[in-house]
């Protein structure tokens, strides 16, 4: 189980980084999304997954059943997923807008014009 999770993490991070390094806006965003899910998975693994016993105190019981699943990382992961989702939606809209306006993903230089002189930076008129 642990080996499987670790392998998934390794392959996933490799895929995410590979996509992130690509010169395509959409792939960049997808890469970030993959890395995001893997970060969530690391967070989730912090709670040592494997237990199937719900962390609920039964009626009449004095405490939690032995070997209960840690509920905190699950709650944290859920929070992180929600936040990550909102950011991703924003990034997709942004990338779509940039691409529609004809962004050149190879360079993205609209905010960094080329210098006219060799030594001094360009004068930007905006």
């Amino acid at each position: 189980m642990n080996l499987l999770l670790i392998l998934t993490l390794g392959i996933g991070v490799a895929a995410g980084v590979y996509l992130m390094l690509s010169r395509d806006l959409f792939r960049l965003v997808v890469g970030l999304a993959i890395l995001g899910s893997l970060a969530n998975m690391i967070l989730f693994m912090g709670g040592r997954p494997g237990s199937l016993i719900a962390p609920v105190i039964e009626k009449g019981a004095e405490g939690l059943p032995a070997g209960f699943a840690d509920p905190l990382p699950q709650a944290l992961t859920l929070t992180a997923i929600v936040i990550g989702f909102a950011l991703l939606a924003f990034a997709l809209v942004l990338a779509a807008r940039a691409a529609r306006n004809g962004a050149d993903p190879d360079r993205l230089r609209a905010s960094e014009p080329k210098p006219h002189e060799a030594v001094k930076p360009p004068i930007e008129d905006w």
């Binding site: 992130m20 806006l25 995001g36 970060a39 709670g47 950011l87 942004l94």
Partner: peptide, 27 residues
């Protein structure tokens, strides 16, 4: 839009690292 994209990609990478580190520290 382009400046935001650059900022977004790098900052998100930072927050993801932070999240992973927090998960490991909690673990």
């Amino acid at each position: 839009a382009e400046a935001t994209l650059k900022y977004f990609a790098l900052s998100l990478l930072g927050t993801l690292l932070m999240l992973a580190a927090i998960g490991l520290i909690y673990g």
